[in-house]
Amino acid sequence: QELLLAESLGKHPLQNRWALWFFKNDKSKVWQANLRLVTKFSTVEDFWALYSHIQLASKLTSGCDYSLFKDGIEPMWEDSQNKRGGRWLITLAKQQRHTELDRFWLETLLCLIGEMFDDYSDEVCGAVINIRAKGDKIALWTRDAENQEGVTHIGRVYKEHLGLSQKVTIGYQAHADTATKSGSLAKTKFVV
């Protein structure tokens, strides 16, 4: 029904409905209170309307995140659809905020909504961008860290879309490992 409605309005329906979340670090509040659902969309046109309306990630203040997840999955590793999963992590150097951050994030969003991971697109849960003074991060979250074939396929396609050189490697961490260790100490499960 939703698909027919989108087409009748001359819009291009997406395979999934997506939810954009915004996180703003306010230390006077608990973590969950700082996380807000911005909106949901399910057509290409509504994605662009939203994207054009919100601030570029590079203009956000430190401590803020954007997350884009499939409708029904909350942007936290505790969600039942995330907790057995993990993330491909892109760690950026400080100067890349001005040169590559917005482009990487847009490419990430296009990969998600365009379902560009072939047979493994169902493995994708969402993506998160963290704006941090010490270095920004972008992560693509998948649902099953044990699905080596799916995870590595997604990683290869993702890396290609970001335009990363073959000399650069990106790593995948299971949320279960990240949750028990602090950031950079989490072990890397796969590399592409």
């Binding site: 395979q15 290409v44 296009l110 365009g114 379902e115 697109s121």
Partner: peptide, 18 residues
């Protein structure tokens, strides 16, 4: 069923279409 897939070029064209 079938999956609705869009490539990068198509998505970017949609941004610029009226």
């Amino acid at each position: 069923g079938t999956r609705i897939i869009y490539d990068r070029k198509f998505l970017l064209e949609c941004k610029n279409s009226p």
